[in-house]
Design a protein around this nucleic acid. Structure first.
Lengths: 189, 189
DNA sequence: CCGCCTATCTATAAGAC
DNA sequence: TGTCTTATAGATAGGCG
């Protein structure tokens, strides 16, 4: 917000980064509290400042209790793509074909798009509580991974930025951990 | 935001409550992710929907790892009031004297003010990680509690709403648990 | 129930001091 | 460095379909 649009990329200047953190932290705390109060639900929030200082928020129960309860819940819920996730899936699928006709785009512009997609993926990473079996987890992982690979490949081919894509910025989906732990957490994007 | 200002009170209509939750949840997730990305820090977020469905977010590490790290950190940090907390302290102290000259205010208006103060207190509850000793915890608790009691009393006296104040909406600060657990978590407001 | 629209309310990035 | 101001991006309550 404010004068310029926010760029979803790490703030390199340490001073600015700390200032940004301080402001945003308070807002997120406030909004989390609003959610907890207006909906009378449990919310837990843990944040580390760039300097390493911790901020802990919990609405009613303790953070530990909320976490334990959340972890127990999560294994009993099913895989359902929420509207935002559906939107992501859609845009991911789209951009694959878009890539075919993007020859005119500038390199920087596409790099930007790619980076934004990475951020989207982080933000929209699967709601782990919605997966009830290893099979579903695997299926979902496959779906996401294949989509991402296709996008990566098509963009890389178009732009010749294979190196950019190989810097482990899309860590592979780790289905092993998921299966072994018996939970759906552990997805890495 | 939106057409009307938000009232910090539980939404009684279950449908509206669920709708509110869904929208706000996404925003908080988005903002948490922005914070994690722009500041390159760890953030963990757990939310229960009114229906009991869990939403879990973590930026880099797993929620468990973040929590463990946060809990370890928290016992080593000192008591420092952040700007917002200072502001709260200030407004709490102020409103005490304001109460003396509020005779002209309408009852509902003051009830609203009181309720908002309660919400503020929930929001601004002490950052538990900033307390390093039982002595500090006790001192802080005393400070907060005495302020709150004074406000409650003066307002109750002015308004004749003692009953309103006795519905356990300000659960007492529990210094026993704090001391026994050897941590600063467990503050109840 | 889900999403879209839009008037309004918030949060804020930059600046100014 | 901290705070206040301003212009602008974002979030969203209430409606509508």
């Amino acid at each position: 917000m404010g004068r310029n649009k926010l760029v979803m990329k790490k703030i390199e200047d340490p001073i600015s980064r700390q200032q940004f953190y301080s402001k945003r932290k308070d807002t997120i705390l406030k909004k989390s509290n609003e959610l907890a109060v207006l909906c009378d639900t449990d919310v837990a929030l843990l944040m580390f400042s760039p300097a390493g200082q911790v901020t802990i928020y919990s609405s009613k129960e303790s953070v530990e209790d909320i976490m334990v309860r959340a972890m127990n819940k999560s294994v009993n819920q099913r895989l359902i793509l929420n509207p935002n996730e559906q939107l992501l899936m859609q845009s991911l699928t789209q951009s694959k074909s878009e890539g075919q006709m993007a020859h005119g785009k500038k390199l920087n512009e596409l790099k930007e798009t790619l980076r934004e997609a990475q951020q989207k993926i982080r933000y929209y990473k699967p709601q782990v509580e919605n997966i009830s079996s290893v099979q579903e987890a695997d299926a979902y992982a496959q779906f996401l991974r294949s989509n991402m690979e296709q996008i990566q490949q098509s963009k890389a081919k178009l732009l010749g930025v294979q190196g950019f894509l190989q810097r482990n910025e899309y860590p592979a989906v780790n289905t092993e951990d998921t299966a072994a732990a018996g939970t759906s957490r552990g997805w890495k994007f």
